[in-house]
C-alpha cells in the first residue's frame, strides 16, 4: 500500500503496482484537432502536405528537397489507377539528384534498415519514398 512523507517543500509518495492498478481519475483537457500551433501529421487540417512532418525524416529539405517535394506531391495527389504512374518524371529527377549525394541518400540496405526504423513511428504514409525518408533520419 502507498505511503507518503514530506521533506520540507518536497512530497514523496511510494506506490505499489496494485495502488496504481485502478484507472486514473485525473482530468486532461481534450485536444483541439484544429489547434493551429500544434504539430500535425503528414496532412494538415486544410488538406495540404505538412512538409515539416517528422515522418518525412527531413527529406523535404536538403539538396534534393525540391525534387522530393515534387515527386511526393505528385504521388500524394495522383488519381491514376496505378497511383503515381503519372509521376515518373518527378521520381526520375529525384533519383538523379539523390545519386549525386551518396552520403546523404545511401542506396544500399534500404529495405532492411527502413523496415526496422518504422517500428514505433506512426506512418500514415504510403509510398516507398517514406521509407527512404526514415532511412535518412537514422543515418
Amino acid at each position: 500500500m502507498s505511503y507518503c512523507r514530506q521533506e520540507g517543500k518536497d512530497k514523496i509518495i511510494f506506490v505499489t503496482k496494485e495502488d496504481h492498478a485502478t484507472p486514473s481519475n485525473a482530468e486532461l483537457i481534450a485536444d483541439d484537432p484544429n489547434d493551429p500551433y500544434e504539430d500535425h501529421g503528414l496532412v494538415l487540417p486544410n488538406g495540404e502536405i505538412n512538409w515539416n512532418c517528422p515522418c518525412l525524416g527531413g527529406m523535404a529539405s536538403g539538396p534534393c528537397g525540391e525534387q522530393f517535394k515534387a515527386a511526393f506531391s505528385c504521388f500524394h495527389y495522383s488519381q491514376e489507377e496505378v497511383k503515381g504512374s503519372d509521376c515518373l518524371d518527378q521520381f526520375r529527377a529525384m533519383q538523379e539528384c539523390m545519386q549525386k549525394y551518396p552520403d546523404l541518400y545511401p542506396q544500399e540496405d534500404e529495405e532492411e534498415v527502413s523496415s526496422k526504423d518504422k517500428e514505433g513511428t506512426e506512418l500514415e504514409t504510403e509510398p516507398p519514398e517514406a521509407s527512404a525518408a526514415d532511412d535518412q533520419k537514422s543515418s
Binding site: 500500500m1 505511503y3 507518503c4 512523507r5 514530506q6 484507472p23 481519475n25 515522418c55 513511428t121 506512426e122
Partner: peptide, 20 residues
C-alpha cells in the same frame, strides 16, 4: 511522437496515502 494513451474512465477514489 507516440500517441498519448489517455485513461479517462471513471474510477473509484483510491485510498489516500498515509504519511510515514
Amino acid at each position: 511522437g507516440n500517441e498519448i494513451t489517455e485513461s479517462q474512465s471513471q474510477a473509484p477514489e483510491s485510498a489516500p496515502s498515509v504519511p510515514a
